[in-house]
């Protein structure tokens, strides 16, 4: 459900609930991209990262 859906209601429940969902999805997306891009740069410049 998106804020432009006809069922959307501008109330706290919708903001908190759907907001949390999109925040989590956004964070996961950012993290995945961060890891992917950093790994690609490491690969490109053959940088050895510190041991895990």
């Amino acid at each position: 459900m998106f804020p432009f859906c006809f069922e959307w209601v501008n109330d706290a429940a919708h903001f908190v609930f759907m907001g949390s969902l999109y925040t989590v999805l956004g964070l996961v997306f950012v993290l995945l991209n961060y890891c992917g891009i950093r790994a690609f740069l490491d690969y490109l410049y053959e940088r050895e990262v510190e041991d895990k």
């Binding site: 964070l27 993290l31 890891c35 992917g36 490491d42 690969y43 990262v49």
Partner: peptide, 18 residues
């Protein structure tokens, strides 16, 4: 594979956030 090697390291670094 070097890329996957680096990717694995980066994932491990991000693990606390995940």
């Amino acid at each position: 594979y070097r890329f996957f090697h680096f990717l694995s390291h980066r994932f491990h670094q991000a693990m606390p956030a995940i």
